[in-house]
C-alpha cells in the first residue's frame, strides 16, 4: 500500500501532463506542437538507426572526453594551486575572470586557434567546463581543517601519500559540487559548439531540422538532448552517493548529536 502510494506520487503528475498534452492537441495538431503519437513515431524513425551512429554517439563521445578532460585537468591544477598560498593569491583574479566569462564566447576563439574539427569541440568543452572544477578544488583544498594538515605533518605524511589520503578526501565534497556544474556546462557547450560550426552531431541535426521546418523531428531532437541531460544527472547522483558515502554518513552522525 505504501509502495503503491509512493509510485502514484511519482507517476501522477507526469501522466496528468501527458493527458493534458493529448487533450490539447486532439482537435488537430498546431504547426508548432506535434501530437504525442506523432512525436513518438518521429522519435523512433529519426533516432533509432543510422543517425544514432552518425550524430548521437559522436556527440556523446566528445562530451565524455571533454568532461573527463576538464575534471582531470581541473583537479590536478586545483591541487597544485590550492596547496600553495602564494599561487592561490596570484591566480585568483585571473581565474575569477575566466569563471565569469560566459563559456560560449570561447567558441569563436577556439575556431580560430584550433580550426573546425573534433579537437576544437573537445577543447571548447574542456575550456568552458574546467573552471567550476578548478575553482572548487582550490576552495576545497584551502578550506581543509588546519588540524588535519598539522597532524599529517607531525606524522610525517607528505607528498603523494598526503594528497591521496588527506587532501583529496577532505576536498572531495567541494570538488563533487564543482563537477555537477561542470557536467551541465559541458552539455551546453557540446550542443552549441555543434550548432555554431559543424556538419554532424546532435546540435547540428536539430538546427538542420529547425531550418527545414521539420517540427516533429526538431522536437524529437530536443527530447534526445533532454534524455542525455537526465541520464547524466542520474549517473552523477549515483557516483556522488558512492564517492561521498562516508561524508553523508558523517554528516548524519553530526546532525544526530
Amino acid at each position: 500500500m505504501k509502495l503503491l502510494k509512493s509510485i502514484s506520487f511519482i507517476l501522477a503528475l507526469p501522466v496528468l501532463l501527458i493527458l493534458w498534452w493529448v487533450a490539447a492537441t486532439l482537435g488537430g495538431a498546431s504547426f508548432f506542437v506535434p501530437t504525442p503519437a506523432d512525436l513518438g513515431k518521429t522519435f523512433i524513425e529519426t533516432w533509432v538507426g543510422e543517425r544514432m551512429f552518425t550524430d548521437v554517439l559522436p556527440s556523446v563521445q566528445r562530451l565524455v572526453l571533454g568532461v573527463l578532460g576538464a575534471i582531470v585537468l581541473g583537479v590536478l591544477l586545483g591541487l597544485l594551486v590550492g596547496m600553495n598560498r602564494t599561487a592561490r593569491a596570484i591566480t585568483e583574479p585571473v581565474f575569477e575572470f575566466f569563471r565569469a566569462l560566459p563559456p560560449p564566447v570561447l567558441i569563436p576563439v577556439l575556431m580560430l586557434l584550433v580550426g573546425i574539427n573534433d579537437g576544437m569541440k573537445i577543447a571548447v568543452i574542456i575550456s568552458g567546463a574546467i573552471w567550476p572544477v578548478l575553482l572548487n578544488t582550490i576552495e576545497g583544498v584551502r578550506a581543509i581543517d588546519p588540524v588535519q594538515n598539522e597532524t599529517s605533518r607531525s606524522y610525517g605524511i607528505s607528498g603523494l601519500a598526503r594528497i591521496r589520503y588527506q587532501v583529496l578526501p577532505s576536498a572531495t565534497p567541494t570538488i563533487m559540487a564543482g563537477i555537477r556544474q561542470c557536467l551541465s556546462i559541458g552539455l551546453i557547450l557540446m550542443v552549441i559548439s555543434e550548432m555554431f560550426a559543424s556538419s554532424s552531431g546532435l546540435g547540428f541535426a536539430i538546427v538542420q531540422f529547425q531550418r527545414s521546418f521539420a517540427v516533429p523531428e526538431m522536437w524529437s531532437g530536443i527530447v534526445v538532448l533532454g534524455l542525455i541531460g537526465v541520464i547524466m544527472s542520474f549517473i552523477f547522483q549515483w557516483i556522488e552517493r558512492r564517492v561521498l558515502r562516508w561524508y553523508n554518513g558523517l554528516k548524519e552522525v553530526e546532525n544526530a548529536v
Binding site: 509512493s6 506520487f9 501522477a12 551541465s184 546540435g203 538546427v207 530536443i222 538532448l225 541531460g229 537526465v230
Partner: peptide, 26 residues
C-alpha cells in the same frame, strides 16, 4: 512537494540550449 518531485527532477537537467531551435521558430 511529493507530487511534483519526479517531474521537477526530470525537467531540471534538460539543457536550456535544447530550446534554441524552438525559440528561433517562435
Amino acid at each position: 512537494r511529493r507530487a511534483t518531485n519526479s517531474t521537477i527532477e526530470f525537467l531540471r537537467p534538460i539543457p536550456s540550449v535544447a530550446l534554441i531551435p524552438l525559440a528561433v521558430l517562435l
